[in-house]
């Protein structure tokens, strides 16, 4: 065989390989395009589900959202039932939750980030916090039932509910506080130490103010979670039919402030919605949708504020 023919053979083979390569390349590129379409589809399933949820709620709940709905007590007649005791209950429970959970969580976060020595105890606390975040909420309800309601005798009250939810959102607030504090640059602390500030002075006057937006984001997310939480309050025995309001915290007579409301029975928005959704009949279910719509609106507003904080934080955070 001559040299030239070998060359031609090689060239022909090369051309065949080329066309094979081109064919495969085309397929690989098609695969990529197909995947991008798939990716768009998968991503939009989540978005579509969220939209369907809100449209479904709005369609059956919106007509019930009259002023009366907010100022009426629950009733046996669906058309006259309202969420007055539920939203007042939610407001009071969440105040207790914030009053207990925020200082406790922020203090724990400060300790773990600024004070804690690197030792086994710190390690145990850290592992514990991340484990606590994974405990199902209903288990917190069992804790509250066994320990608070029957052990400490705080009863099926607003105080018990607020305390339970505070413990539930503790990990969220601790983690957010730690992340916010960690983002404060060391130069700030060193400058303060350099002029003779004590550890607490540095923390209080310099680290914490810089960390406030991050902490606030975590607090808002935690509060939003607590507001929507149903299961642990069912186990401690929130009532779903409450046709009275707890005693007012402020009064015209001495001593002007009363804490009797803390130990009253209560209901909250999610419990009220749960009660209505489990009743037969469209009327009560549109009440449930309306209560759910109010809950969703609060959740969206709170999360929106948190997202906005985080967005501004990321833009501002160029130390």
């Amino acid at each position: 065989m001559s040299i030239t023919s070998t060359l031609t053979d090689g060239r022909v083979a090369g051309r065949a390989a080329d066309s094979e390569f081109v064919r495969r390349l085309k397929r690989r590129r098609t695969n990529e395009t197909v995947f991008i379409c798939l990716g768009l589809a998968a991503t939009s399933i989540g978005l579509i589900a969220l939209a369907a949820l809100m449209i479904d709620l709005a369609a059956s709940g919106y007509p019930r959202l009259t002023a009366d709905f907010f100022t009426n007590f629950p009733s046996r007649r669906a058309g006259q039932a309202g969420i007055l005791s539920a939203w007042v209950g939610s407001l009071l429970v969440i105040s207790v939750t914030a009053f207990i959970g925020v200082p406790l969580g922020v203090a724990a976060g400060i300790y773990l980030e600024e004070y804690a020595p690197k030792n086994i105890w710190t390690n145990i606390i850290e592992i514990n916090v991340s484990n606590l975040a994974g405990v199902p909420s209903i288990v917190f309800g069992l804790l509250a039932l066994g320990l608070f309601v029957y052990g400490f005798g705080t009863g099926r009250s607003i105080f018990t509910a607020g305390l339970t939810l505070a413990l539930l959102i503790l990990p969220i607030i601790i983690v957010a506080t730690r992340e916010a504090i960690r983002a404060v640059p060391w130069s700030l602390r060193e400058a303060a130490y350099g002029v003779g500030a004590t550890k607490w002075q540095v923390t209080q006057d310099h680290v914490l103010p810089a960390a406030v937006p991050g902490v606030l984001t975590g607090v808002i997310i935690g509060i939003s979670r607590a507001l929507g939480e149903t299961a642990p309050l069912v186990t401690i025995g929130a009532l779903s039919f409450i046709a009275f309001l707890p005693p007012s915290p402020v009064s015209a007579d001495f001593p002007f402030i009363s804490f009797a409301w803390l130990f009253e029975g209560f209901t909250v928005l999610p419990i009220q919605a749960f009660n209505w959704v489990s009743r037969p009949g469209d009327d009560f279910q549109s009440n449930a949708a309306a209560a759910g719509l109010v809950l969703m609106a609060i959740t969206l507003v709170l999360n929106g504020v948190a997202i906005y904080f985080r967005y501004r934080l990321r833009k501002k955070l160029q130390w």
Partner: peptide, 24 residues
């Protein structure tokens, strides 16, 4: 834009999800 919206899905109160599961 999409991540925060998707993350809203974990913030929806579960009782609302229950309603959605049963009636939608």
């Amino acid at each position: 834009i999409i991540k925060p919206i998707l993350e809203l899905l974990s913030g929806v109160p579960t009782v609302v999800y229950g309603f959605f599961a049963l009636l939608f």
